[in-house]
Amino acid sequence: MTDDFFACMGLPRRFDLDRAAIEGRYLELSRELHPDRFIGGSSAERRAALERSSALNEAYRGLRDPIRRAEHLCKLGGIDLDSDARSGGAPTPSQAFLVEMIEARELLAEATTPGEREALREKIEAAAEERLAAAAAALEGGMIRDAAEALVIHRYLRRFLDEIDGAQH
């Protein structure tokens, strides 16, 4: 059973949420659950508030970042991107894309100047942004599978961006 971060925060289950609205809701609920308000309560009440508060913190972390929000929507829709399971796990990208990812690494290894690395970085970053936008559009249209496919590509691209940044140091 997946915890529903949207239900936890009383927010509509959708990708297109305003960051300020998420934050506002978090602060509001945090105040309601503040331990000071339960000083006179029973130990069961105090414990329940603490548990609610910890669930709220987790939900907030999961929703404020657009990437995690999108991945959470996929999980609620039945596709868990953290799983390699053939059914219900992260979809496998095309062979052509994997070949591209290997070739991009070879380009990075051959890049000798910071300018070449930067050009490659910008290209990959643009591709990643484009995939996230595609995932957002798919989620707004209720197409979980399409969103998950775009988000998997996004993960590969992000991993590669981390490598480029590592190589620059």
Partner: peptide
Amino acid sequence: GIVGAPACGDVMK
């Protein structure tokens, strides 16, 4: 053979 691990973004040739 080129394969990938979608959950973590690893690629192997």
